[in-house]
Write a protein that binds this DNA or RNA. Structure first.
Lengths: 349, 349
DNA sequence: CTGAAAGCGCTAACAA
DNA sequence: TTGTTAGCGCTTTCAG
């Protein structure tokens, strides 16, 4: 806290920050040497390092990023692009937690994060131009949208990217994702362990990787558990509460004996609970529900369902780590980081 | 969509972006002239402008920000600093909505937003250094924390700031805030209009401006409504649900006849509703509740209370507008922008 | 109205 | 190990 005085000369406006030149002069060496010290070059004598370091802190010198960028062509900046679509609902807590993770991972580096919030086609153009014109070293993509041309365009411009979630189109790229397959599997195991035998699932849309993967987990696990007919009791929703309500009802009409259900999203989970309630079914005595909890929505709405939770903050951290890795090894093979999900058991109220 | 070809030569890595030099050559003019065109100087002949413009789009030229910053000393970047304290809960949707507003306001400009998420003392130091060393043109502060030395330090470095919320310490600075006083007042008016006469309030902490302001609105309005004894029925909480529960109970013990209550935050509102429920009071037949809705929490938890809602997204937009204004007029008087709140009436379930 | 030239602060050969 | 030098791409006087 007791820094040297901030370099705030009390006079008029054009207070200039100290430059390498000034530091060099004070330390009695050349600009180049100071530069070496600043950048931690090994080939500088200890005495000189000491002198320079002293001069630096005496003057409160901080390198000028623009000047450095101009010559190194590094920006020390990464960008987080979120492509918000109109139909993207309720993703706030998700985003915030991820952002927190990103920032955590960034604090151990000298990278800055710039935020690009692309809504609409026009803003996407703008974002793309910005990214592709050497303003950032790498990009983090939150888009969850399969037919998005953005990742390809950015990659083509030679900017490394890390995506959030498995790319639906099978494009080869670095990405991090939660273990959606494992989550679905665990949901089923939990239900089976609770003695349920007549299972069903309200699955997500099949053009989104979370939808596909969670269903796969369900199908895999019911097959492993020899609950072969469970694979037939699948309804598809679009991750909204309304869909959860509708599809849950449909499932029960078709098979009244259902005693356990895996719902592939939190919002649909709430819809499903409403449907069960309206149909006079008690949860979980009558029907056990496990929902996939994309957002910590349960923290707000507190539905009494057991959930499969994504480690959202960790996902953010891992995105940064992977990007860092790619920045230092641009030509390595694309990697996927899959983080385990967590089963959160809640007793019903 | 049918741009000129992106400047992606299909060969090896060191694909260099076109520079002023290249554009000048193609257009048959000098660098200086191209620069003038790019920056919209009025003193260039139309023919030349046309030629240069054509060359620019033919090459897909985009100015190099670093080079420009180096000479102009403008960064075309503003920073959003959020100082998250450990006790800050549930502010995700608030933050996200504000961010959305900030971005909206930014799209009409050429400014970039960089995000600084300062948690803990160490990160604050880092953030401060970054901001004060010419990396940004201005700063947006989300800190809601009275004894924060950060704003003063940044201002002292000559960087304009705009704060979110009225500075508790009365420091003179640009800020935007919701009309908390007006919100409290409107809450009371609403209750009075509904025929309530025995009012009380669960107020917020008195070392936070929202707490102070909302209480003032309550006191003002009950005095105007000649409900003089209402000013005596004040309990103080810390904006948490637990506090709402506790203080609501205390108020009712003290004055069982309360038929309307203004709760100064959403979380406390939920606590108050629980307390009323536990005490066997019906809402709103028995006791009407108006809560101040800092976050759109009601959208998740859907408590059946009427709320005073902040226009969070607009707050973000206005912060940017005010900062822009200050950037163009650095020596003007500090301004406060107070946005009206909104009364949202919900029927109880 | 346009061009020539001088840097902005830094890094990276290349010399010494 | 250190210093010298030549730019990075842009803006901005200052001449013409």
């Amino acid at each position: 806290m007791k820094n040297g005085e901030p370099p705030t000369s009390a006079d008029g406006k054009p207070r200039r920050l100290p430059t390498l030149e000034i530091v060099a002069e004070l330390a009695g060496v050349s600009r180049a040497t100071v530069s070496r010290v600043v950048n931690g070059s090994p080939k500088v004598s200890p005495e000189v390092v000491a002198a320079v370091t002293k001069a630096i802190s005496a003057l409160g010198y901080v390198p000028n990023r623009a000047a450095r960028t101009l010559v190194t062509r590094r920006t020390d900046t990464i960008v987080l692009i979120m492509h918000e679509r109109p139909d993207t609902v309720f993703e706030d807590p998700f985003f915030f937690n991820m952002l927190r993770g990103v920032n955590t991972a960034l604090t151990t580096t000298d990278l800055q994060l710039v935020l690009l919030h692309a809504r609409g086609e026009q803003q996407r153009e703008r974002a793309l131009r910005y990214v592709c014109n050497g303003h950032v070293d790498g990009a983090l993509l939150i888009s969850m949208h399969g037919d998005d041309p953005m990742p390809t365009a950015i990659t083509a411009a030679g900017i490394p990217i890390v995506a959030m979630g498995r790319p639906p189109s099978g494009r080869r790229t670095d990405y991090v994702d939660a273990d959606n397959v494992g989550g679905g599997r665990e949901a089923v195991r939990h239900l089976v362990a609770a003695g349920r035998r007549c299972l069903a699932t309200v699955a997500g849309p099949m053009d989104m990787s979370p939808g596909v993967d969670r269903l796969r987990g369900y199908v895999d696990a019911t097959r492993d558990g020899e609950l072969h007919d469970a694979a037939a009791r699948v309804a598809y929703g679009d991750f909204t509460e309304a869909a959860g309500y509708r599809e849950m009802k449909a499932l029960l009409e078709q098979t009244p004996g259902i005693d356990g259900v895996f719902v592939a999203s939190d919002l649909m989970g709430i819809g499903a609970l409403r449907a069960l309630h309206d149909l006079g079914r008690r949860v979980p005595e009558d029907v056990a529900v496990v929902g996939h909890d994309d957002l910590p929505l349960a923290a707000y709405a507190d539905p009494p369902l057991t959930t499969i939770r994504q480690p959202v903050e960790l996902l953010g951290q891992e995105m940064v780590r992977l990007l860092l890795h790619r920045l230092s090894d641009p030509d390595g093979e694309p990697e996927a980081i899959i983080l385990p999900t967590e089963l959160v058991v809640r007793s019903s109220a």
